[in-house]
């Protein structure tokens, strides 16, 4: 199915958020996630199913003022 990861279109196997993150190379990384604009806490990733067209945001610590 097709989802948007940080604005870019990606094809992934139907999956939970946890599996999608691993497949996208974010496994074990320090990231926080939101799906369709809603925060998904790390403990909820395994139980969060992704649907076709979902918008996934994956953020990490960055420089800031």
């Amino acid at each position: 199915m097709r989802i948007f990861v940080n604005g870019d279109q990606r094809e992934i196997e139907p999956a939970t958020l946890a599996l999608a993150l691993a497949a996208l190379g974010y496994g074990g990384k320090k990231v926080a996630t939101a799906v369709n604009g809603r925060f998904v806490p790390a403990p909820a990733r395994a139980a969060t199913a992704l649907d076709d067209g979902d918008r996934l945001e994956v953020v990490a610590p960055m420089q800031g003022g």
Partner: peptide, 14 residues
């Protein structure tokens, strides 16, 4: 610090 999209293979946030 801020939060920004973790993009690219270098994973600069880490």
């Amino acid at each position: 610090v801020s939060l920004r999209r973790e993009a690219g293979p270098e994973r600069s946030g880490q």
